[in-house]
């Protein structure tokens, strides 16, 4: 039976490279046949939701927008969920940020520490926590 990796991701978009590193690592692990679970905790919960389209014109130029898009790894979370990763978020940290109840990206599930994260831990061989 293949080993399972759980990534506890505490960082969201843009603030650092944790999310980008986590997704790159998850993709590589899935490609090698490992199981991957990601718990979006703290600011990481901001990655769970579908984005709201900009209403009207954006005030960014194309170059700045391209730079900001590097850190937008939400679509890649959907991709690794489709590859078999289990991804859950924490509704309490969502509540604290005013996003509880917002629509999730495809493949990302409502979650909590008491059950979702605990289940991840009980079924994992390696736990990595990425935060700053």
């Amino acid at each position: 039976m293949s080993k399972n990796l759980t990534i506890n991701l505490l960082s969201g978009y843009q603030e650092n490279e944790d999310a980008l590193f986590a997704v790159n690592l998850a993709e590589a692990a899935l490609s090698k046949g490992y199981g991957v679970k990601i718990f979006l905790y703290g600011n990481g919960c901001n990655l769970a939701n579908q984005e709201h389209p900009v209403q009207g014109a954006s005030h960014m130029n194309a170059r700045l927008q391209a730079h900001m898009d590097i850190g937008k790894i939400g679509p890649r979370l959907e991709k690794i969920a489709a590859m078999g990763a289990e991804i859950a978020t924490c509704h309490t940290t969502e509540y604290g940020r005013g996003t509880e109840g917002d629509a999730y990206r495809v493949g990302i599930k409502w979650g909590d520490v008491g059950q979702s994260f605990t289940k991840f831990l009980l079924t994992s061989d390696v736990l990595l926590t990425f935060g700053h």
Binding site: K3, L25, A28, A29, Y34, V126, L128
Partner: peptide, 18 residues
């Protein structure tokens, strides 16, 4: 690279500390 990082994390160490 990331393939090698996966090996280090998943197979070559009993403990990984972040």
């Amino acid at each position: 690279d990331y393939d090698r990082i996966v090996e280090l994390v998943m197979e070559e160490h009993d403990q990984v500390v972040c």
